[in-house]
Design a binder for these strands. Sequence first.
RNA 1: GGCCCCGUAGCUCAACUGAAUAGAGUAUCUGACUACGAAUCAGAAGGUUCCAGGUUUGAAUCCUGGCGGGGUCACCA
Length: 594
Amino acid sequence: MEQLLREKSAAIVEKLYGQKISPDEILVNIPPKDFPFDFTIVIFPIAKLARKSPEQAAKEIGNELRIQFEEIVEAEPVKGFLNIKLSDGYWIRFLTSAMQDPTFGNLPSTGKKMMIEYSGPNTNKPLHFGHLRNIFIGYSVSEILKAAGNEVVKVNIYNDRGIHICKSMLAYRKFGDHETPQSSGMKGDHLVGKYYVKYDTELKNEIGALILQGAAEDEAKKEAPLSVEIKEMLVKWEDGDPEVRTLWNTLNGWVYDGFEETYDRLGVDFDKAYYESQNYQRGKFFVQEGLGKGIFFKKEDGSVWVDLTKEGLDEKLLLRADGTSVYITQDIGIAEARYDDFHPDIMIYTIASEQDYHMKVLKLICKKLGEPYADGMYHLSYGMVDLPSGRMKSREGRVVDADEMIDEMEATAAEHTNDLGKIEDFSPAEQQDLYHILGLGALKFFILKVDPRKKMLFNPEESIDFHGFTGPFIQYTYARIKSVMRKAESAQVFTKAEIREKASALQPQERSLILQLQRFPSIIREAAAGYDPAVLANYIYHLARAYNHFYQELPILNAEESATRDLRLRLSSFVASVIKKGMKLLGIEVPERM
RNA sequence: GGCCCCGUAGCUCAACUGAAUAGAGUAUCUGACUACGAAUCAGAAGGUUCCAGGUUUGAAUCCUGGCGGGGUCACCA
C-alpha cells in the first residue's frame, strides 16, 4: 500500500509540477496515534521541488490523489503533511486476503545462503547469562533470516583447546579423585567448571605463599608450581601425549553432554559443530601460504605478522616465533573450513562487542588473502551483560548460571500458574510443558527486547517479571484470543451476508489495530536487514496491546451485532497468527492455553 | 593516550529512513472482576533526550568540540 501511494504521488508530482521524483524518495509514514488517518505523506521535500509552500502542495496533491485513487476517502493537508484515510472496504479486503495467505509475513526466497555462528562456548565451564544473550540473539536472527527468504545454516564453535582448557584438566587430575558426573550427580559442564574455579583458587594460594616467602608478585606468578605444570600440560597436549589426550577427551565429553542438555532446554540447535582443535593447524597452513605470496611478513625472530597500518590498524601477530598459532590463526582456518563445507553468501558471527577489533582484523586478513567470502563476513556484535557489581567473571565464580536461571524461571511460572488455578485439568506432563514455555518465554523476551548492540544490566536480585511488557504478557494475549475464538466459534451466530451488510461500521480501534497489522511485512524486512530483533519485539508488544485495548472496548456478546462479532473473530484469528509468527521469530513458543 | 560503542522519565528500556505532542514497563497515586480469561484494563503524575555549537522547513537521531561510562589496543583465548 505504501508503495502504491508512493508511485501515485510521484506520478502526480510529475504531472502537476513537471518535476521528476522517484517513488522511493517519497516518504509515507504512519501518523501519530491521535490522528484518525491511515497514512501520512510528508510533503516538505516535494514542496521544495515544486517551489510551492508545503500547505499549497499538500492541498493540490491531495485533491489529485482523491480523483485518481478511489480507495482514498479523505486526504487532509496539515502543515507539510498530507493525511490519508482509506476506505473500510480496502481494509476488509486486506484483512481477508492476509488471513487466507498462509505465507503472510514471509518474504519470497532470496536464493541466498547465510551461515550464522552463535554460542561458541569454551569447554571448561558451564554456560552463563552472557551466553544466553548470545544464543537467543543468534537463534532469533536465524529465524528472522529464514522468514526473510534465506537459506540458513546454524553452526557452533567449540573453543576446546588451549591453556584455559588445561586449567580444569590439571585441577581435576590433582584434586579430582576420579569424580565423575555419575558419582557426583553433577551435570558434566558444571563438574568441569568446578575444577576450573578450583585451579584459580589453588593458584592464588600458591602465589600468596610464595609472596610471603619474599618473592616478587610477577615472579611468584611464574614460579608457582601450578603455573609450571600447566605449561607442561599444554605442551604435552600439543604433542599428543596419550594420558593428557585421554583426560582431555573425557572432560570435554562430559562438558558436551552438559551443553547438549542445556541447548535442548533452550530449544536451540545447530546444523554443524566446529572444533578449534581440529582447525588451528589448518589456519597455520593459510598463513604460510599468505607468507609465500608476500601478503604477510616475517620478523627476525621468525614470527609472522600482517601489516594493517594502511587500514588504520596495527601490525598483528599471526604465528609465534616457535611456529605455534594464536587466536586469530585458527579463525582463519575455521572460516576456510566453513566456506569449503557450505559455500555461504554471508557468514554471520554472533560475538560480543569486546571482539569488535578482532573481527575487523579477521575480515581484513581474509580480504588480503583474496578469499571470496571475505566481503560476506558480518560481525553481529552484541553488548555484554553486566551485573550491578560489574562484569561477570567465571574464574571467580561471579556469574549467573544459565541452568539455574532456567530452573528459576520455570519455578516462577509454576508458582504464578498455580496461584491462578486455570489449568487444573492439565496432566502433570502438560503442566511441566507449560511452565517451560512460560519460563523460557519470559527469559528470552527479557533479553531480546533490548537492542542487541547495547550492553544490558541484569540484576539477579530482581527476578524477571511476568507482568507488563514481557513474554508471558504476549503469550497470555495469544492464549486469551484462542479462548475467545473457541467460545465464539461454538456459538455460530453469524453469516457471511451479515458481515457484508454491517462491516462498513468499523470502529476507530479496529482501524488502528489493522493499521498496525499492516506494517508487519515491512517490519520483518527491516529486522532482517538490520539484524534487529528488538524492533520486532517492540512491534509484537504494540500489537498485543492494541488487541487488548480493542478487546476491552467491544463486548461481542451483544446478539444484535453479529457482524461486528465476525469481524472481531477474523481480527482475532489474524492477530493470533501474527503473534504466533512474530514470537517464532524471537524463538519463543506460545501456549494454546495457560 | 589512540581507536570503537554508549549517555533518553526515579529505575529497566523504546522511538523504523531526520518529521507532528519523545513512548512502554516498573515504581507512586486513582478507578474497574455476578458479561467472552484481571498474568488484564482505564486514568493521573513523572523529560533541558549529558553539555555547547552547527547543518536543516524540521534533530534524541546527522556534523564538530567538550563531559561522563564501558570496550579494545597481548607472542591470552
